[in-house]
Each structure stands twice: as structure tokens, then as C-alpha cells.
């Protein structure tokens, strides 16, 4: 997944205990395995990102399993409760087991 570009958005600063939204976006064609090559009639094999896991300071807070019904360039938004400053680490994994990682810094005030 060399060409995939992942983006993550979190608030700049959060208060402890506040629940904030995390938005993620990754570029991927999410080939369903249902499409056929119009010229040859051959099926194009499935190739999707099937997993997104988010860890907050090393502990899993959110995970999702995706199926081919998830659109190309998957967008995923979810929520996390602010606990301590640190990082949110995201890992996307595709059908071949290759993964893309991205981290976001979390600053918890007060």
C-alpha cells in the first residue's frame, strides 16, 4: 500500500473527560471482488482494507472490521474520551496483511 495516503483529524486541545470526535480518511480503491474487467470478462480480485484499529496511549479504544460494502477511500469517524495527553495510533490493514500507520497527538488540558 505504498501509494495510500492516510489522514486523521483530532481537536487541537481537549479537556479531560471530554468526548471528542476523531475523523479518519485513507485513499484506497477498495476493490470489491464483484467487478469484472469489461474487456476480458474476468473477475477483478478483491482487495480492500479490512481493518482499522485505533489505540490511545497503547490501549485499544476503537476497532472496526470492514467488508467490501465500505466505499472507496474509506472515511471513518468515531469518538474517544479524553484521558491523558499522548497519542492516538491508527493502523489500517489490507487483504494482503500490509498495514498503514498514522499517529495523532492528543493534548489534554487541565
Amino acid at each position: 500500500m505504498a501509494k495510500t495516503k492516510a489522514r486523521v483529524k483530532v481537536p487541537k486541545s481537549i479537556k479531560k473527560g471530554e468526548v471528542f470526535q476523531v475523523k479518519t480518511l485513507i485513499s484506497h480503491k477498495m476493490e470489491t471482488g464483484q467487478r469484472k474487467n469489461k474487456k476480458t470478462g474476468k473477475k477483478i480480485s478483491r482487495m480492500i482494507i479490512n481493518k482499522l484499529v485505533c489505540q490511545y496511549n497503547g490501549k485499544e479504544v476503537f476497532a472496526s472490521d470492514w467488508h467490501p460494502a465500505i466505499s472507496a477511500n474509506p472515511y471513518m469517524a468515531f469518538y474517544v474520551k479524553a484521558d491523558a495527553s499522548g497519542s492516538l495510533d491508527f493502523t489500517w490493514t489490507d487483504d494482503e496483511g500490509k498495514s498503514v500507520k498514522k499517529s495523532a497527538k492528543i493534548t489534554v488540558a487541565g
Partner: peptide, 20 residues
């Protein structure tokens, strides 16, 4: 379509995504 796993640290069980 998809499965999501939450924990108490999620704060809110809400997800948004785009599907086919």
C-alpha cells in the same frame, strides 16, 4: 457491511462512514 468494537474509553458509541 462492517463491525465496530467500542470500549468505555470511546465515550460515545457513534460511528459515521460511507457505504456501497
Amino acid at each position: 457491511v462492517a463491525s465496530f468494537r467500542f470500549s468505555p474509553a470511546s465515550g460515545k458509541a457513534k460511528v459515521s462512514t460511507r457505504v456501497r
